[in-house]
């Protein structure tokens, strides 16, 4: 456990350095590392003004939003898997993705007058995502007799309804806007600046803290709703709080960077295979591992076919799936 924790922290540090160092403008690694220390008050600036602009204005916000997105999606996925006691749960389970997709599509197709991606796309995506989760909850989560299966099924119904609405909008629109919608849906950190970082930062930090804090409750809830109630856990309240936190955080991330798949389902599973089934370990390690993983993936996405970029969701799946398969073949069966 200590070994895994130390390993993920090292991986995180390496990912941060890679995120800042690698790119078309070459900046020596030692200078970047020196400048990181200078920023926390140790030593002097080691970068030229040009290098400083490239590293701290272009690469740093993109790296930071990658950290935030990776940790939030990973911890939300782990939390969902715990609260639903379902290994296939991911942060998009209750309709966040389809809600955000519909919101963004509406913004791009109906409000853009045929050109560009309007600035309120993130806002509409966020509203769509939250509305979808709230509707899912109202259908499947409120009633005293509902259980997690009801909620999952409500999520499936809401998601398919919103996706079909989105498909309809796309079908009615021009080829150009369909392409822009498609690019948005694939997810990218390219447009992230410090403004985006500060916008999502408060949501994401609060939501991550809530999810990680729920670890012990999720451990108890692995014996099912009735038994955990008899052990003293207010199951319905815990479920409401962690679903609200995971969904809010995920909605904030999705509205900023689009739909990045795979991190939320695969990172918690990799972590679980390494540290066991306790959510008190899975969730905090997922926060760090998810952050490192996504920054690595983004570094690859923006460099392999530079100056063009690979969609981030494609890269996360391309790296994540083989890594997962390797670990899975070494350690089985999958515990949940």
């Amino acid at each position: 456990m200590a070994f895994v924790a130390a390993g993920t922290v090292v991986a995180l540090f390496v990912a941060i350095v890679c995120g800042l160092v690698i790119g078309p403008t070459s900046v020596p690694t030692w200078r970047v590392v020196g400048d990181i220390f200078a920023h926390v008050g140790i030593g002097h600036n080691t970068l030229t003004p040009l290098q400083s602009t490239v590293v701290w204005t272009l690469r740093a916000p993109r790296m930071v939003i990658g950290l935030l997105a990776g940790s939030m999606l990973a911890v939300a996925g782990g939390t969902y898997q715990g609260v639903f006691r379902n290994p296939l749960a991911d942060p998009y389970l209750l309709g966040v993705a389809s809600g955000a997709g519909l919101g963004a599509t509406f913004a791009i197709i109906d409000l853009s007058h045929g050109v560009g991606t309007p600035t309120w796309t993130p806002l509409l995506a966020f509203v769509g995502a939250m509305a979808a989760v709230i509707v899912t909850w109202l259908i499947g989560g409120r009633s005293i007799r509902s259980n997690t299966s009801t909620l999952i099924l409500a999520g499936v119904a809401v998601a398919s309804l919103l996706t079909s609405a989105q498909t309809f909008l796309q079908q009615q629109s021009s080829a150009g806007s369909i392409t822009r919608v498609y690019i948005w849906l694939l997810g990218s950190l390219a447009s992230a600046g410090w403004g985006t970082v500060w916008l999502v930062f408060p949501y994401v930090i609060v939501c991550i803290i809530i999810c990680v804090g729920a670890g012990r409750a999720l451990d108890v809830m692995s014996v099912g709703e009735e038994e955990s109630r008899s052990l003293g856990v207010p199951v319905r309240r815990v479920r409401f709080i962690v679903i609200a936190a995971s969904s809010l955080g995920t909605a904030a991330i999705v509205s900023a960077v689009g739909l990045i798949g795979f991190v939320g389902i695969i990172v918690p599973h990799i972590v679980r295979l390494l540290v066991g089934t306790s959510y008190r370990r899975i969730l905090p390690i997922s926060v760090i591992f998810g952050a490192a993983f996504l920054v690595f993936a983004d570094t690859i996405a923006r460099t392999v076919i530079a100056p063009s970029e690979l969609p981030l969701g494609v890269v996360t799946a391309l790296i994540g799936a083989p890594v997962f398969v390797i670990i899975l073949s070494l350690r089985r069966p999958v515990p949940v």
Binding site: S222, S230, V233, T277, S278
Partner: peptide, 27 residues
């Protein structure tokens, strides 16, 4: 509330859920 109740009455259920992967001690 649930916690107050759990301090007064314990239940051995008919079909306990067995959370695979958890150690006996933790359970």
């Amino acid at each position: 509330n649930e916690r107050e109740r759990a301090l007064r009455v314990a239940l051995v259920p008919q079909h306990p859920v067995v959370p695979s992967g958890m150690s006996v001690y933790d359970y």
